[in-house]
Amino acid sequence: MTPNLESALQTDTVFRTDNLDIYYGSFKAVRDVTMEIPKNAITAFIGPSGCGKSTVIRCFNRLNDLIKSFHIDGKIFYKGQDLYASDVDPVEVRRQIGMVFQKPNPFPKSIYDNIAFGPRLLGYKGDMDELVERSIKSAALWDDVKDKLKSLGTDLSGGQQQRLCIARAIAVQPDVILMDEPCAALDPISTLKVEDLLQELKENYTIVIVTHNMQQASRSSDYTAFFNVQANEKGQRTGYIVEYDRTEVIFQSPKHKATQEYVSGRFG
């Protein structure tokens, strides 16, 4: 399926997938994903539970490699390079493509050390204090934590923890930030703060976000992919893309009935 995104996509493509099928063992979790994700924009994945949107996003930084039975058919290109080529180092991939998870997962270390973790891995030789401050400021967390950089990251509130995790991802200056339902565990006010942050971040980063929250997708994203799930005769549920387009098209004039029903809240 080729998204009809006109000129916008021709500018710069960060990810391109080509007939991507994702398997766990013999179980096909997602099928036929063909899409292009544009640079410096926010692309949202929406869809009902079990439709494979998180599975797809985790292929973009090869985090699924940690699951033994996982394998793919088809191709994923990142800036023209085949992500799953045999000579590609998944560790290197993850250094360039950051990730923020559903549940805030700061390390049980100080706020400062959480941010400095990634740069230290990379052997960063510059001014670490300055980098930490800059990253925290980018994540709109500086005013909350500037006086307590030495206290534990795990002692922050849920919303602050999640912004800390975003700051931690930013600190290694990745090209892309993947976000797997980053607001699912947050209260509405923290959620709004993170959404504001997304708008600021997109000037420098390409963002792919999985979300359950349709308002969030319609408010924050530039492009939206709607995933659905289909069960075969054996009861195995396989996810696929129904429609992928500019966000206003998906939410105002979708071409598929399933999309229309989902975004108007009739199922899912």
Partner: peptide
């Protein structure tokens, strides 16, 4: 350090 490096 991070950007523009090879993935190899």
């Amino acid at each position: 350090l991070s950007s523009g490096r090879s993935l190899k």
